[in-house]
Nucleic acid binder design. Sequence first.
DNA 1: AGGTACCGTGGGAGCGCTCCCACAGGTGAT
DNA 2: ATCACCTGTGGGAGCGCTCCCACGGTACCT
Lengths: 351, 351
Amino acid sequence: MASHGTRGRSGGRPTLEEVAARAGVGRGTVSRVINGSPRVSDATRAAVEAAVAELGYVPNTAARALAANRTNAIALVVPEPETRFFAEPYFSDILRGVGAELADTEMQLLLIFAGSDRERQRLAQYLAAHRVDGVLLVSVHADDPLPDLIAQLEIPAVISGPRSAAETLPSVDSDNYGGARSAVEHLLARGCRNIAHITGRLDVYGAQRRVDGYRDALLAAGHEVDELLIVQGDFTEEGGQRAMRELLARSPVPDAVFAGSDVMAAGARQTLREAGRRIPDDVALVGYDDSAIARHMDPPLTSVRQPIEEMGRRMLDLLLTEIADSRPAASRGLERRQVVLATELMTRASA
Amino acid sequence: MASHGTRGRSGGRPTLEEVAARAGVGRGTVSRVINGSPRVSDATRAAVEAAVAELGYVPNTAARALAANRTNAIALVVPEPETRFFAEPYFSDILRGVGAELADTEMQLLLIFAGSDRERQRLAQYLAAHRVDGVLLVSVHADDPLPDLIAQLEIPAVISGPRSAAETLPSVDSDNYGGARSAVEHLLARGCRNIAHITGRLDVYGAQRRVDGYRDALLAAGHEVDELLIVQGDFTEEGGQRAMRELLARSPVPDAVFAGSDVMAAGARQTLREAGRRIPDDVALVGYDDSAIARHMDPPLTSVRQPIEEMGRRMLDLLLTEIADSRPAASRGLERRQVVLATELMTRASA
DNA sequence: AGGTACCGTGGGAGCGCTCCCACAGGTGAT
DNA sequence: ATCACCTGTGGGAGCGCTCCCACGGTACCT
């Protein structure tokens, strides 16, 4: 008693036992009340709740985790090597969505960086130690071993964009295909006839889908797809510049460019300006993401908006049901575990 | 045994006891090795380390937290009501700095949102329950009760910008005063003679300091400070526009504007453009933050860069020492607990 | 030789909770 | 009346660790 009892004393955090004594009931009963078990009489419940309030009791997470063998925590894994990823609002918005949804739960959110090898090492340990009940994976690359590791460890997880059409992990994504189609259809409706596409990194599935959308929009309108008008970018501004320079070398020069991201669009704009081409008179420009860059570009950039915050919310939703399902030998159905959310074209001066 | 032993089984996570058995030592010894105690012979240490490696032992955080009465977790509290705050790179960069520094420790990072009242309620509970060893507070307002609550609970904390000159909490900040001075000095060196300042919200201490820097730069150069050239903004784009309109009504119209943030500078640019004023020929423009907006503005914006990532790193550093100090009845000296980092003026076409 | 000091070590107790078994008391069927 | 079966409850055991006391051993003093 002596040795331990005095250790962390200061405010004297009350324990379950103290609440039980105060309420004149047993420890088990208090636990049941705290955890919302129905097998408690109304009178007892009221007494316990009163005691909890009087004592200002707050359950000790560590003890709970230890005894129950669960953590009540989920991890958001950030594959940080990409500085760009962080700078874009994407991450913040996902986070905000997750945070909003999280407020309704008892879960806590752990942020884990998996940029360096050392950090990945640590992450693997984390996961091996089952220190979280579930994992949220944002912006994983096609060749990332992480998802497989997680699947193997049987840790519930949700991924922010499927890695391929055959993704097995639950995922939440926006409609990249539809978003791209709407962008191209807008350009067509505007009268553009020679529409180019600067793609993102094609090892990102979403970028592929945008190319698909671009193609199908043209085909559906009865146009041919000129493969020379599809130039590969890499989501960076420099990539956008390079791609645009390539496109300016084509003849005829395209009268519209659909860029796979706002940042690439910014690069393209740069190159267009240097070449003395006006936007949108000479070349109409559409981006993707509807980031701050789009709104502040000159001229303001028409861009495809993704409901990113909503994506964050849905990711957490999905993860929580995954976790719940995994508790008692779950049904493991292939239900609605792939969520796709609609995009919206934000029309501005550039197209 | 039966009832509990079978519970979470699946991979069979090894325990301290198992490692001890394997290494042929006692539980206490393994614990000492794990925790890097020096009071272990080399031979024993080696044996234990071998056993740990063979078994793939990973300590159970919950058990550790329970027994040791510490959590090995720190919280980053996000006062989320401000959407803007999230959208700016500020947050991401702080986070990256914290994350980088975190990789060297055993600490885990909890992200807590304190936007809504409900979330703040939850946060208070968290803190009351001492579920974290320390708290990182970013962008708190002068009137926020949170810092006081935290101080009262005697939870180690670091704040990202002092709330006033008399801040008692440890803090990390950039040199707002010096940054503002360098901006104004640059404009003076450029030949501008009529330099206006659009301030941030003056209940933010950093915004006040920028005003101070603006004033002193002028005075030091032997100029008078025209109070009419100091217009209050609120860190928003609209605020920047409003302020700029006010300034355009002055006579003479200033030949330079130092805006307290890039976003406000963007607003000012908008208004200047509408008024047909050229940047920098008619009016030179300098912003603050060196955000993505600055680089993408037309013309690119000269802006004061803060070493935000470094700030994140230093915040974590400070917090860890605070935590370490608080363990054994600490010295509580008033040492270097207020860190101020230098800024850098990024010169671009706008000034 | 005896004493004192320390080192490295083993293991008991205890952290605050959940889980589950046991049991009292009630209710309905037999 | 007996039995079966509920519901509500109390409390033991145990989760995996840290802390600390106790102990045998060695080294150095007197």
